[in-house]
């Protein structure tokens, strides 16, 4: 029984850690996309200036 309880706890912990990593990675992907887009926008406006 004890062993079963223990493995339950660690299963919970594993689930928690997985959730924390997923949240962290989701936030990182969002920010990286934004900075990537900003870079592209910058490039576009630079191109435009050249045409003008």
């Amino acid at each position: 029984e004890d062993a079963a309880e223990e493995s339950n706890v660690s299963a919970e912990l594993i689930a928690l850690r997985k959730r924390l990593v997923d949240e962290w990675n989701a936030w990182r992907i969002m920010r990286q996309k934004e900075t990537g887009e900003k870079g592209e926008l910058k490039q576009e406006s630079e191109d435009k200036e050249e045409i003008e």
Binding site: I14, R17, K18, V21, W24, N25, R28, I29, Q32
Partner: peptide, 9 residues
């Protein structure tokens, strides 16, 4: 230390 999950920088 906490398994094989990839953590982004």
């Amino acid at each position: 230390p906490y398994g094989d999950i990839e953590i982004m920088d």
